[in-house]
């Protein structure tokens, strides 16, 4: 059974129908990259997967839980769905260590000591051990995004969602963040990544999804999508970005 199962998902903002009929099943340990033009609904789709947006109709199941109908339990389900944002959204009033350990402590999932030990371990994984006690504003964009990844991982999620994690970065910092994500993928994390980094999609994705005007127009392994796209709109899009 799929880790994330999306059925007939529709989402409108007022009169604007952004997602028209999305069906998608993501398996455990699978890495999905979502590509598509600006405004095609990529972020909206991702945000429906942890209920930051409410679906207009259809269902989104994560780990067997229907998150669209279950508002009482959404806080619980979200603990298992990590999210990394384009703008990092680190908490500026907390140190790096506090950013990472704060949620597990506040939600009483771990003691302070356990959470901080875990945070140090995660900082080692993203290669920022020495930054534990600085504030986010003292970090570069690439470092902030790696902390944001560590913060999401601190909840020990089953699925990680990434919304253009490198789009706000200076070019020289993109690599360090992608490297962390690649490592995560290799360790078997289930990942859904909205990205404009076609190189990353080619190399790391198990499956690439092309979204246009609220529909999944084409999907398949990267070799298919990039090497031999079938749909005209996919071809047009790839011609523009490659």
């Amino acid at each position: 059974m799929g880790k994330v199962v999306i059925k007939n998902l529709k989402k409108s903002f007022g009169d604007l129908e952004v997602l028209k009929d999305i069906n998608l099943e993501v398996c455990e340990r699978e890495v999905i990259c979502i590509i598509g033009a600006s405004g095609s609904g990529k972020s909206t789709l991702l945000r429906c997967i942890n209920a930051l947006e409410d679906a207009s109709s259809g269902t989104v199941e994560v780990d067997g839980h229907d998150i669209t109908g279950a508002h009482a339990d959404i806080n619980k389900y979200r603990q298992d769905i990590g999210m990394v944002f384009q703008q990092f959204n680190l908490f500026p009033h907390m140190t790096v260590l506090q950013n990472i350990s704060f949620a597990p402590i506040s939600l009483k999932l771990k003691t302070k000591e356990e959470a901080q030990a875990k945070a140090h371990e995660l900082l080692k994984r993203v290669d920022l051990e020495e930054k534990a006690n600085v504030y986010p504003e003292q970090l570069s964009g690439g470092q902030q995004q790696r902390v944001a990844i560590a913060r999401a991982l601190a909840m020990e999620p089953d699925v990680m969602l990434f919304d253009e994690p490198t789009s706000a970065l200076d070019p020289e910092m993109v690599g360090e963040v992608l490297a962390v994500m690649k490592k995560l993928a290799n360790e078997g994390m289930t990942m859904i990544v909205v990205t404009h980094e076609m190189g990353f999609a080619k190399e790391v994705a198990d499956r690439v999804i092309f979204i246009d005007e609220g529909y999944i127009v084409e999907q398949g392994p990267p070799s298919e999508i990039f090497g031999n796209p079938k749909n005209e709109r996919t071809i047009n899009f790839l011609n523009k970005v490659l």
């Binding site: 942890n50 930051l52 806080n75 979200r78 990590g82 908490f91 949620a103 506040s106 999401a152």
Partner: peptide, 10 residues
């Protein structure tokens, strides 16, 4: 900020 906090399950 609110979205990041909520996405952690708060």
């Amino acid at each position: 900020q609110m979205e990041a906090a909520r996405s952690l399950g708060l």
